[in-house]
Write a protein that binds this DNA or RNA. Sequence first.
RNA 1: GCCCGAGUGGUGGAAUGGUAGACACGAAGGACUUAAAAUCCUUUGGCCAUCGCGGCCGUGCCGGUUCGAGUCCGGCCUCGGGUACCA
Length: 927
Amino acid sequence: MDYNFREIEKKWQKAWADNKTYKTEIDHSKPKFYVLDMFPYPSGAGLHVGHPLGYIASDIYARYKRLKGFNVLHPMGYDAYGLPAEQYAIQTGTHPAVTTGINIARYREQLDKIGFSYDWDREVRTSEPDYYKWTQWTFIKLFHSWYNKNNQKAEPIEALIAVFAESGNSDINAACSETAEFSAAEWLAMSEKQQQELLMNYRLAYLADTMVNWCPELGTVLANDEVSEGFSVRGGHPVERKTMKQWSLRITAYADRLLEGLDRIEWPESIKEIQRNWIGRSEGCSATFAIKNFDQNLEIFTTRADTMFGVTFMVLAPEHPFVEEITTTECREKVQAYQHWAKNRSERERMTEVKKISGEFTGAYAINPLNGEEIPIWVADYVLMGYGTGAIMAVPGHDTRDFAFARHFGLPIRQVVSRKGETPVDPSDWEDSYDSKEGVMINSGFITGLEVKEAITTTIRKIEEMGIGYGKVNFRLRDAIFSRQRYWGEPFPVYYKDGMPYTLSEDELPLELPEVDAYLPTESGEPPLARAKNWVTKEGYSLETNTMPGFAGSSGYYLRYMDPRNNAEYFSKEANEYWQNVDLYMGGAEHATGHLIYSRFWNKFLYDLGIAVKDEPFQKLINQGMIQGRSNYVYRITGTNKFVSYNLRKDYDTQSLHVDVNIVHNDILDINEFIKWQPQFAGSEFILEDDKYICGWEVEKMSKSKYNVQNPDDLIEKYGADTLRLYEMFLGPLEQSKPWDTNGIEGVFRFMRKLWRLFHDADNNFRVNDNPPTPEELKVLHKTIRKIQEDTERFSFNTSVSTFMICVNELAELKCNNRSILSELTVLISSYAPHIAEELWSLLGNKGSVTLATFPVYNDSYTAENTFKYPVSFNGKMRFLLELPLDIPVSEIEKAVLSAPESAKWLEGKAPKKMIVVPGKIVNVVI
RNA sequence: GCCCGAGUGGUGGAAUGGUAGACACGAAGGACUUAAAAUCCUUUGGCCAUCGCGGCCGUGCCGGUUCGAGUCCGGCCUCGGGUACCA
């Protein structure tokens, strides 16, 4: 074959590895650029064609930046802890490290075949002690830190202890769990255990009884982002709510900064929006309602202080501590039954039966502080204990949920907001509540007549004066649960003394994962690490048996890449000051509420410690779209072994079956292959159209069971890595989801061979001429340089590939085999198709790698034109083209257009009303 | 329900408010060949046409702004994605 990609690609992959072509060091003479891919979890299935999409795109960009003179950091590693390897260990007894090692080797082999420019000397694996030492180290730092809201910064816990001893906690403004006030004297009088318990309320990594998502099937708790609609994201097992003692990270302390930082980073709007919703900041106020015949006040949170005159009942969450105390004797039985029912109702039922309204009257009454009205207190599970105070003031006139509840139980509805210019009607005739914040207050005492927004601030001011409430901001974001009852994860550097947790000292790290006899919980239900022998410190204190969650290791890996072999520090100051943060981060949108928020938190914490120089880890983020599968179907006539071609299927009663896409070409079934494919199809008969069996198709998720999986290795074997790289880009815009369809790959392969032939004669001998390039050749080249540069910088790689095709077509047309033109083209294409570029570069007589070349400089003078073919429109409709010099004045253009022979027909003898002339663009004649 | 994103030929897609359909795939016809592969050439949005002049329609639908709208604005429809008793 003329273009021998197999030989070329093997040769250059070896050369790159042997010469460490992509090894990167700090180089202060060059500007830095950090291009990062989200590192993969190495699953047993290997890579399919969807995985490399983002890797190829970022590789093209990294290579482009090198040609542009940047010192590019482009590392790769593995998110090596994960459930599948552990599940496999439970089933087979194979240590997860073994499985993971095998899978990594397979991934590496596949990645190498695609020709990425990774600096493999910087590889990290989250499950290696050298790496997770720093995950543990960060945990220790979190444990010994608290968040000072006054300066919005994490600070050492020692400073807090000093303040406690000096003046107690009354002057402290911390992000903390609810803590009673105490004086310095009280603090000093406490036992160590009491002090430790108290400090736990302030630590950024803390142990507490928490309502968790417990997944019995996986035998572990899960973070909120690992649960979707009551099922685990990994594996789809049911999840229930349960109170357990768990490690948590006080990410809520950073809620405001996580929100604010979004405005300073270049991420897709959709991802920022998802994070904003996840953080869920809402401004409102807290207000306390007195309860009749009860000495404590009920605190609620509301964003609609303006509607306080419209409150007709109160609602408590079933778990609210007041329920028991305020419920009257007459109501006790029913309320307790309701609480019991609500408690045993699974999360899933609550999710799916959202519309089902339930609740019970407690018999107690609250007193509206603004108008003194007595209002009934109900208990209902549409109020959640986990948000706000677990209690609400219900305003059925202006809140959809309260409205539905009031209607269901026949509670009064009162209107207090009126749409402008509308006469209020009796709410009992309403079909919906009026939730909008547009309108004027009515029936509302001192705020009647005010606009809603004004009414809110006025009411808050009033309740602050009354001393019954204050303006308050609430967040939906919850602290991140950080313990897992699993084996395959980072051990906590924690031991227990007198029931209280203490951290190991930093010089005892890493605390290595111990061996166990089985990867299952113990009989008493303790996590697998409880099986480890001698799982105690030197002093004999028992070590923590939980392990860290999947997001622990991925939260700071981008920092470790800067200095991955450093044994004394997470990373050196020098490395961090040089590499700063990630300039371009490429990965999937599915990490929006997990990894991408945890890393931002992790990074901000390290920034507070003065360890990281940038507070945002990923300056620019691009989400590559998902590659969907394109499945093929055959149609079997029901109850027979006869298959009918796609367009004839309507005449029969058929059932559709998935067929392996690898035995279908352009939707035409390879019948011989089909018969051999599965034994059940051996004697099949076919009803054909035009002598062909046409298959149906559909876009679906790529999966084994749908027989639509395409594996990059097969395509590389057939077409080569360069073709695969170009084709994945050619498929469409990077950020869009798109079906994988190999039909178009032939066109890209044809292009590669055309490119090769530009450099070779008919007998495949390398041949270029050293003549000075012609103006036509220079024009084609420089047009291409400009477009490739533009497209690459805006990540429009699909149009870059088209541009290369156009360039090669035009150069072939010109019979160009000019050395200087082809040399520059080789450099241009080297970031897209690096193997062929290296080969051509060396055939052109260059000694070093093409990666050391410089990106060609665009020269305007080669593309400049003297004339332009104006599209001439009449009333906006393009009628003909007229070629005119570019340097004539507008008046000349007008004259030329009107005197053009074609114009007469459209002018119909009339004089134009107006003429629009955009020089070099268009002419429009208005009649 | 709410918040994003997208709707363009048979298919993937292109197009700073300025020639809609670049570049490919597929299809049809042809050249070369004993044949196949490979390669090359022609046609390819729809409709009309005295098919070598040309014309009309056309970017999900309805309006608007503009000399000019796939692109901007308003209102709908459909399909993806996210999220949900968050007070």
